Simulated scan of single mutants.
Amino acid sequence: MSKTTDATRTAEVERILRAFKKNPYEALDIDAFATDAEVKKAYRKKSLLIHPDKFQHEQGPEAFDLLKKAEGMLSDAAEREKIDSILTYARTLVLKEALGSGYSTKVADDDPRVTGMSPPFQIQLRTKAKQLILEESMDEKNRANMVAVNEANERAAVEAEKARRKRKVEEQKAWDERRDERIGDWRNYMHKEKVRKVKKAKKNLHVLG
């Protein structure tokens, strides 16, 4: 195996690792909206180039897994539709920014105004798509955080209610357990009051006599 081939394989591993992982087209290094045949061709070519059985590289297995994941995303109809919808919007934004009033939905990728873009159209498209995907991921993260906070608050409210009911049961139990004691205290109090009144009556009689 020549040094040039090793260098090429190493460069491909490093390229895949640098690629934006959430854009499978970028990981496979193909144009957005590539056909199924183009996707499979790119995956086959690149996977053979860096396959761990054919090329030993410390991060080769990781790069190979990323390739498989990218191909899998584009093979899944739902995943591909989601990615393509974001890229379609990214394409519209890039062309509107570049062409201004000259933009039209009919502008094709091979239009001279598109092919003559600098940086190249596909590079701008990847950059814009990355921005949109990250924004969407952040929105999803924020929504997930809000759900988590609400669920935590609900759990806290449930636990607080359980604790309140437990305290109420314990307080009632303590009240019931001290019933005899309270009755005894009341009887002692009444007895003392009766004795006090008797003594007072006798004292009054003694004073009058």
Score class of each variant (00 low, 15 high):
residue 143 R to V: 04
residue 6 D to H: 12
residue 168 K to N: 03
residue 176 D to M: 11
residue 82 K to Q: 13
residue 199 K to R: 14
residue 67 L to W: 01
residue 61 P to H: 09
residue 68 K to D: 14
residue 138 M to T: 09
residue 85 S to N: 10
residue 69 K to Y: 08
residue 186 W to L: 15
residue 70 A to H: 02
residue 106 K to L: 15
residue 174 A to K: 05
residue 200 K to Y: 03
residue 159 E to H: 05
residue 81 E to I: 02
residue 128 K to A: 08
residue 58 E to C: 01
residue 179 R to I: 04
residue 186 W to K: 10
residue 85 S to R: 10
residue 204 N to R: 14
residue 103 Y to A: 03
residue 131 Q to C: 01
residue 86 I to A: 04
residue 191 H to F: 13
residue 156 A to T: 06
residue 126 R to M: 12
residue 183 I to Y: 00
residue 27 A to S: 09
residue 106 K to G: 10
residue 73 M to F: 08
residue 56 Q to G: 11
residue 167 R to I: 05
residue 110 D to Q: 10
residue 160 A to Q: 15
residue 65 D to Q: 12
residue 40 K to Q: 15
residue 135 E to H: 04
residue 14 E to M: 03
residue 22 K to G: 00
residue 175 W to F: 05
residue 110 D to R: 14
residue 183 I to L: 14
residue 155 R to D: 06
residue 165 R to N: 08
residue 25 Y to I: 03
residue 179 R to V: 07
residue 19 A to T: 07
residue 154 E to I: 09
residue 60 G to N: 07
residue 205 L to R: 14
residue 50 I to G: 08
residue 176 D to G: 01
residue 198 V to F: 00
residue 96 K to F: 13
residue 167 R to F: 10
residue 55 F to D: 11
residue 132 L to M: 12
residue 97 E to C: 00
residue 189 Y to H: 08
residue 139 D to N: 12
residue 39 V to T: 15
residue 106 K to Q: 15
residue 165 R to P: 00
residue 13 V to K: 02
residue 141 K to C: 04
residue 171 E to Q: 14
residue 3 K to Q: 14
residue 70 A to N: 04
residue 40 K to Y: 11
residue 9 R to D: 05
residue 177 E to Y: 00
residue 149 V to E: 10
residue 60 G to M: 05
residue 185 D to L: 11
residue 95 L to E: 06
residue 88 T to Y: 15
residue 186 W to I: 09
residue 33 F to L: 07
residue 127 T to K: 14
residue 197 K to G: 02
residue 70 A to I: 07
residue 55 F to L: 12
residue 171 E to W: 07
residue 108 A to G: 03
residue 193 E to T: 08
residue 155 R to E: 09
residue 71 E to L: 01
residue 160 A to H: 08
residue 176 D to P: 04
residue 94 V to D: 06
residue 96 K to R: 15
residue 16 I to N: 05
residue 180 D to N: 01
residue 60 G to I: 05
residue 46 K to C: 04
residue 193 E to C: 08
residue 144 A to R: 09
residue 73 M to P: 01
residue 6 D to N: 15
residue 206 H to V: 10
residue 207 V to F: 12
residue 86 I to P: 01
residue 182 R to F: 04
residue 16 I to C: 06
residue 164 R to S: 02
residue 1 M to A: 12
residue 119 P to D: 05
residue 15 R to P: 09
residue 4 T to P: 04
residue 152 A to Y: 06
residue 32 A to G: 10
residue 131 Q to R: 08
residue 96 K to V: 14
residue 1 M to V: 07
residue 88 T to V: 06
residue 151 E to D: 13
residue 67 L to M: 10
residue 111 D to N: 08
residue 81 E to Q: 13
residue 160 A to P: 03
residue 156 A to D: 13
residue 190 M to P: 00
residue 82 K to H: 09
residue 54 K to M: 11
residue 162 K to D: 09
residue 51 H to P: 08
residue 41 K to Q: 13
residue 110 D to L: 10
